[in-house]
């Protein structure tokens, strides 16, 4: 029998065809989707915003590389997840934050929240959210030193100003002409990024829509059926940034469809509770981290029904014969 000895064949388990989508491609898409928000931040807050974005991304990648090297594991910076985390942290701080603080935040996110638990996919809380919360509790003054865009006057966030005369208009909220963190101010840029992620099928619509929808609905009724209140609450604070880019983090959100729904509604309700009754003006970070921790339990409750294992299956069998 003729055997062509020159041919070396690869043997592997099926399937032999795959989607072109890769982990790196997904992370690259997230970085692209964040670009409008980054550009808006730089536009409004100038070089300082650009510096924080660059330093934070660089530091996050460095910590990922350094820690993996230290513990002798495979280098994972090429999956770009550390770059995403670094950039998200920068978008979650005010443009006035001292640079050394953001480096601490990167360390906490990458080393403590992510690598201590096993690296990508194994962390139980969103690293960027964990870092933001540590910063908020450790350096409350610096984390609340918000400035007006362009003229850099000291101001408060729209949530702190809600209901006062100084409250920005909805239009200002939409384009981002108000105080806030680098990435959260321009709702329009964030929505643009979110649409890109939806089109590229990186995220599903469930989490952002249920999260934002819950906040809008609760705020609508909480303020006596006020559409203005609902819109104001949706467009201000870190809600859109959180709902589109942070709550959708794969590792820390449920994999099941109904789990995603419960998780997102939970995020929305906790955000509203904190905003309405808490001493903090903003509740998005805390709501996401609480739901992150509940994710394994939500998943357990919403396991998909195995085809042929449910009541419907038995009925179908009996009914049709």
């Amino acid at each position: 029998m003729l055997i062509n000895m020159n041919i070396k064949l690869t043997v592997s388990s099926s399937p032999h065809v795959h989607t072109p989508m890769t982990t790196r491609g997904i992370m690259r898409d997230v970085l692209i989707a964040l670009m409008p928000a980054v550009l808006a931040g730089i536009c409004f807050f100038g070089a300082r915003a650009a510096l924080l974005c660059a330093v934070s991304t660089g530091a996050a990648v460095f910590f990922e590389w350094g820690f993996r090297k230290l513990i002798g594991r495979k280098n994972t910076i090429s999956d770009l997840s550390a770059a995403v985390t670094g950039l998200l942290i920068a978008l979650n701080v005010p443009p006035t934050l001292p640079v050394w603080m953001i480096i601490i935040a990167d360390f906490i996110a990458i080393v403590v929240a992510k690598q201590f638990f096993g690296g990508i996919g194994e962390n139980f809380v969103n690293p960027a959210i964990a870092a933001r919360i540590i910063l908020m509790t450790s350096f409350p003054k610096e984390m609340n030193a918000f400035i007006e865009p362009v003229d850099a006057m000291t101001t408060a966030t729209p949530l702190a100003l809600a209901g006062t005369d100084a409250a920005p208009s909805l239009w200002q909220l939409l384009i981002g002409y108000h105080g806030g963190t680098i990435g959260e101010v321009c709702a329009l840029a964030l929505i643009l990024g979110g649409v890109y992620l939806l089109v590229r099928r990186v995220i599903r619509w469930i989490i952002p829509v249920c999260f934002i929808g819950t906040v809008a609905a609760v705020m609508f009724f909480a303020d006596g059926c006020s559409l203005y209140s609902a819109a104001y609450q949706v467009l201000s604070g870190g809600l859109i940034l959180g709902a589109v880019f942070m709550a959708t983090d794969y590792s820390t959100s449920p994999v099941t469809t109904w789990g995603k729904v419960i998780y997102a509604i939970g995020c929305g309700l906790i955000t509203c509770l904190i905003r309405l009754f808490g001493s903090l003006a903003e509740g998005v970070s805390f709501s996401i981290i609480i739901m992150n921790i509940l994710t394994p339990h939500i998943e357990k409750l919403t396991m998909p029904v195995v085809f042929g294992a449910d009541e419907k299956g038995r009925k179908a069998k009996e009914g049709s014969l």
Partner: peptide, 20 residues
């Protein structure tokens, strides 16, 4: 190239048998 599982849930959506 193989990457670590990021728990994106695409496999859960894809399974015709409803497994995880």
């Amino acid at each position: 190239v193989k990457w670590d599982c990021i728990r994106c849930g695409r496999c859960v959506e894809a399974c015709p048998m409803g497994l995880v």
